[in-house]
């Protein structure tokens, strides 16, 4: 059953044209981005249960797909042929075509999926249930549940090591990071971090975990092998999420305040903040365009998707979407490194 899509005829033509470019990723990889349309951006409206489909060339919302109850996070399938939306209140994963925004399939009885992640070796699919203090480990090939672990309290974001031996989870309410061994499928250790940890990523050299500490507005740098905090890098109020710029060195950090919201650029070699952009509305999840010219961020509390021009380092445009926009994705994205 496909979702109801409301679009103008012009938008449909545009999307059909985009769909014809099945070789878009190849063209983009070759750097030929001038001629090809940029395609669609998908923004999850978690309170509305919908996905806003945004034309990346015109910055206009050209359609809306009905998703499910409380879709919070999304991630591409390993082959980039689908965007997987985690529907926490519907207990489903819904797959959408990133080129057209059309629904592909639903997997039911995935209990309260909130944050998702595939291990780098593509063997594991991990789902956090933030509301119910639980981490579920699925076989990524067929989404069968292999292990279920208590994770008190409020398991939020996740990161993997390069060898896919561990998944690291931030525990937002107990102010900890938990490491789950993907061989034994058991909790291996838990270490204390700053107040209200949210986003977590592994540095490209596989040495450090970077944890956004929302309670005090900094990024905590952790040597995960020794479980020691080696540095705290102040960013801004309510540091929430991290996203790679795509060059293997810099990470964007969203600081999720409403009026004073911002995005910092963190250099992982010097572990310092080198740039900061004003992004109002509570910037949350982010995506970077493949050519590195734009950073897109959902403004969680502002009902908008904010587009930052990375050349001028200013807010380029602000796109009204639905209520509580959370996850954002487009196929035309920079490498995840």
């Amino acid at each position: 059953m496909y979702p109801r899509i409301a679009m103008s005829a012009h938008a449909i033509r545009k999307i059909r044209r985009a769909a014809l470019h099945v070789c878009l990723p190849l063209l983009l990889a070759a750097g030929n981005t001038d001629a090809a349309p940029l395609g669609l951006a998908l923004a999850l409206n978690s309170a509305d249960g919908t996905i806003s489909l945004i034309d990346m060339d015109t910055y206009k919302v050209v359609g809306k797909a009905v998703a499910c109850k409380e879709p919070h996070h999304l991630m591409p399938s390993p082959d980039d042929k689908s965007v997987i939306v985690a529907c926490s209140a519907s207990n489903q994963l819904v797959f959408f075509d990133p080129l057209t925004g059309k629904e592909q399939k639903r997997i039911r009885n995935i209990s309260d999926p909130y944050q998702l992640g595939f291990s780098p070796d593509r063997k594991w699919f991990v789902s956090n249930s933030l509301r119910l203090d639980r981490v579920d480990l699925y076989d990524a090939s067929d989404f069968t549940l292999k292990a279920r672990l208590h994770a008190p309290r409020t398991p939020s974001h996740m990161a993997f090591d390069a060898a896919s031996e561990y998944v690291f989870i931030t525990l937002q309410e107990s102010n900890e990071v938990m490491a789950i061994n993907l061989k034994t499928l058991k909790k291996e250790w838990v270490m204390p971090v700053g107040p209200t940890p949210a986003g977590i990523v592994m540095t490209p050299d596989n040495r450090y975990l970077l944890v956004a500490i929302m309670g005090e507005g900094y990024v905590e740098v952790i040597d995960w092998k020794t479980q020691k905090t080696i540095k705290k890098v102040p960013t801004d109020t309510a540091a929430h999420n991290l996203h790679p710029r795509g060059d293997g060195r810099y990470y964007f950090v969203s600081n999720r305040s409403v009026s004073g919201g911002s995005i910092s650029l963190l250099d992982t070699q010097t572990m310092t903040v080198v740039e900061k952009y004003d992004v109002p509305g509570g910037p949350d999840d982010m995506e970077v365009r493949a050519d590195g010219k734009e950073l897109w961020a959902t403004a969680r509390f502002g009902r908008r998707v904010q587009v930052v021009d990375l050349t001028t380092k200013t807010l380029k445009t602000s796109i009204p979407v639905g209520s509580s926009p959370h996850g954002v994705f487009f196929l035309n994205h920079a490498p995840r490194k």
Binding site: Q172, P195, T196
Partner: peptide, 8 residues
């Protein structure tokens, strides 16, 4: 909320 460690 942040001062009380209730950011979540």
């Amino acid at each position: 909320l942040l001062a009380l460690g209730l950011g979540s």
